[in-house]
């Protein structure tokens, strides 16, 4: 006897259309009675998109909508035309996600094992896996640490490891949820430079406004709504004004 899994995609409809970017249509989200996000209609196609907002503004939930970690209670989120509700697996292959706390995303005891984790899930054969892991570790200066225990790395190295674990999967787009909040200035700058150098589309949720220099578009989230959608200069000005009136 087989149960049809409600979340599983119907057979072979992975017809991604890379030009469409990330679309949010009438998106809202509630946890029980608490409304976290509402009335969001957006299409994100720019290579560099920033999201700012106060604590509790709903921006973390916003970030999680973009790769199906959270499925909206209202409306739909489409990534290159794929619905996060019905094609979450395909969506997650396209959209990588880097979290704030590196300790919360390193799941294997040693560095190389951890980087390989996502590739195992994708069913990448062991030889190719090893080659891709080695290449990524080399690129982010972690090659000398491949067999080291992850807990002995510094905070900055741990975040690099977390990013390496996502990049090795070669996603087309990457969402960063406050990637530099827990890092010191030097490491924050390294991560910022790394993000700036990525060829993928990047969506960064952050409190650190200088991270948004050179971005194409910045959204200001407040009280569950997108209250400003502009280039970094004007958007940051709006955000500062908003915070001063608290």
């Amino acid at each position: 006897m087989r149960f049809r899994r409600p979340g599983a995609a119907p057979a072979a409809v992975d017809v991604a259309d890379p030009g469409r970017g990330i679309e949010l249509r009438g998106v809202g989200h509630r946890y029980g009675d608490r409304v976290v996000l509402e009335g969001i209609d957006l299409r994100l196609t720019e290579p560099r998109v920033g999201v700012v907002g106060a604590n509790g503004s709903g921006k973390s939930t916003f970030a999680r909508l973009l790769n199906g970690l959270v499925v909206p209670t209202d409306g739909q989120v489409l990534v290159d035309g794929l619905d996060t509700r019905t094609q979450v697996r395909a969506v997650r292959r396209r959209v990588g996600f880097v979290f704030q706390d590196p300790d919360a995303q390193i799941v294997h005891p040693t560095v190389a094992e951890d980087v390989a984790y996502g590739l195992e899930n994708q069913g990448v054969p062991p030889d190719e896996r090893a080659a891709r892991v080695a290449e990524v570790l080399e690129r982010y200066g972690l090659a000398g640490h491949a067999d080291h225990p992850a807990h002995l790395l510094s905070g900055g190295q741990k975040q690099l490891l977390a990013i390496a674990g996502v990049l090795v999967m070669r996603p087309a787009r990457i969402v960063f949820d406050e990637p530099t909040t827990l890092l010191d200035l030097v490491n924050a700058r390294r991560v910022a430079e790394l993000i700036a150098g990525l060829e993928q589309q990047v969506v960064v949720v952050t409190h650190q406004l200088d991270l948004l220099d050179g971005f194409d578009r910045v959204l200001v989230v407040d009280g569950g709504r997108v209250v400003e959608d502009a280039p970094p200069g004007p958007a940051v000005a709006t955000y500062r004004a908003l915070m001063e009136h608290r």
Binding site: F3, R5, P6, G7, A8, R64, N67, G68, L69, V70, V71, T84, R85, V88, R89, R92, R93, G96, F97, F99, D101, D103, A104, Q105, V107, Y117, G118, N121, Q122, A162, G165, V166, M169
Partner: peptide, 25 residues
Amino acid sequence: QMAHDVSEALDARGADDVPAHRPRR
């Protein structure tokens, strides 16, 4: 809370193909 965050990170790297908040059967 950390374990919950870890599970999100696992899902983001493809541990599970079912959405975290799936509709009831």
